[in-house]
Nucleic acid binder design. Structure first.
Lengths: 253, 253
DNA sequence: CGTTTGTTTGAGCAACATCAATAATTGTGG
DNA sequence: CCACAATTATTGATGTTGCTCAAACAAACG
């Protein structure tokens, strides 16, 4: 098809200033000039396929990475072949922050689906942030937020029931999709039940049973990866330990 | 006693350059001149007593704090009065990093015993780190390390057995005391069993029973807060999931 | 189209929580 | 310094959540 415009990734001059993720990503709170300077150090490679590693535990650390499309899981592999899933990352989210300290990745990251990322060489970013107080501030904020999110996760794993964990998980994705302009109630989860369970500190079977139960209770509709949240308020109640099942048992018939 | 030298905290001109914690704290990797400049923004207040709050969730964030002596627990209070203990902090450790993002503390911190801290106004630190690349780098490293430590904690809470959790907890303190020049095998834990359990996602009773069992198995000697680790190798085995109990059951008589 | 991988469901079980009682320790006021 | 109250720790008995094991089923893949 000769008259169809060829769009190669090389030609696609995506720039931070045009990027729809700008409000979620590093450019937040930067002046246009500063965005331009940030843009100049960003590298955009070709996309990863499902299952590809963005990096592996032990790899030398050179760059932070921002997901621009698709999704990624980070995990920490154990000697015995098992792993701990550390997080699922959506467009606009920065990964690799844990690797700054010892210049080596302390976890692995793989694409859950076809995924594009921006690469930000950390050396350059450090230099730039030294010259650009607002960028430095943004970096401190991002790192701090990451810490805050992980402490929430500690509470989840330390104190919450299986039910509360899954509800928290689902509403977290709901909010994150919403922020990115997608539906807050109808989405596809790109990870397997196994990975969800691993992340939440639960067995696969428990996750599966909970999905079934939530569906029976009219909280959601689920078919494999496709999830539709039908009752956000009650899901919210569950997160906060309010046992809405007993309070309003709606099991049909 | 008129001829006894009066040592007030006002007069105690402790400086970073003389501080025994310098190798653990922010001054790591700074030139003497730079340490001097850092020193100039650090505030040293009077000590906190056991139970005093250094700050509370919701407080405005102004300063990071470094423990200089004593110990501190950070925790996230829930609506219902319960709490999640997020960490126990020893001299040289920096707290408040999670508050940078929204300029408000997202957790509370209280002294577990008489505790002294250095206060580092964050605005000044930001300015200084902008002018001092090595300090900026150090900050990035510290924040990154915090993230890394929390991901380890996620694995602990997500995957490990009660036994593994307590062993990990004990060896973590062992190493941290050692780094500070104290015994790695003989120390006092300043927190209660309840707080340990809370931190590790276990019930108080489970913690108590485990201490008893570890003692029966000759792994340690414990008398209230006083702990003596008798078999570091086996404790290490436990952490890595090797059931040393069955392998070398040493129950006396 | 068979093979592999992921999901669901059931049955039984184990680890750890909860409840309850006692004991030890610490703090407090006289 | 002692007596009493309050807190903290230990220990035992019982209960429950969620794990493990097992099997059937569905979907994805070459």
């Amino acid at each position: 098809m000769p008259n169809r415009k060829v769009v190669s990734f090389e030609n696609l001059k995506v720039a931070c200033k045009n990027c729809s993720l700008a409000t979620l990503c590093l450019p937040v709170a930067l002046e246009p000039d500063d965005v331009e300077r940030l843009d100049s150090i960003v590298k955009r490679g070709r996309p990863f396929h499902r299952g590809d590693h963005l990096f592996r535990e032990g790899d030398d650390f050179h760059s932070l990475r921002v997901i621009t499309s698709g999704s990624v899981k980070t995990y920490s592999p154990s000697e015995d072949g098992s792993e701990q899933v550390l997080g699922f990352h959506l467009p606009g989210e920065l990964i690799g922050l844990d690797a700054i300290q010892n210049e080596r990745h302390s976890c692995s990251a793989r694409a859950l689906e076809t995924t594009a990322v921006c690469e930000i060489p950390f050396d350059s970013l450090e230099e730039l942030s030294s010259a650009m107080p607002s960028l430095q501030h943004q970096m401190y904020c991002l790192l701090s937020r990451e810490i805050g999110q992980e402490t929430e996760m500690l509470t989840l794993l330390g104190k919450k029931s299986a039910e509360e964990r899954l509800a928290t998980f689902l509403l977290s994705f709901s909010e994150r999709f919403k922020k990115r302009g997608f539906s807050a109630t109808d989405f596809f989860l790109s990870m397997s039940r196994h990975e969800i369970g691993n992340y939440l500190g639960l067995a696969v079977e428990t996750v599966s049973r909970l999905f079934t139960r939530f569906q029976e209770e009219g909280l959601l509709k689920v078919e494999r990866k496709h999830v539709q949240l039908l009752d956000l308020p009650r899901l919210n109640d569950i997160i906060h330990g309010i046992d809405s099942v007993r309070t309003s048992n709606q099991s049909r018939a």
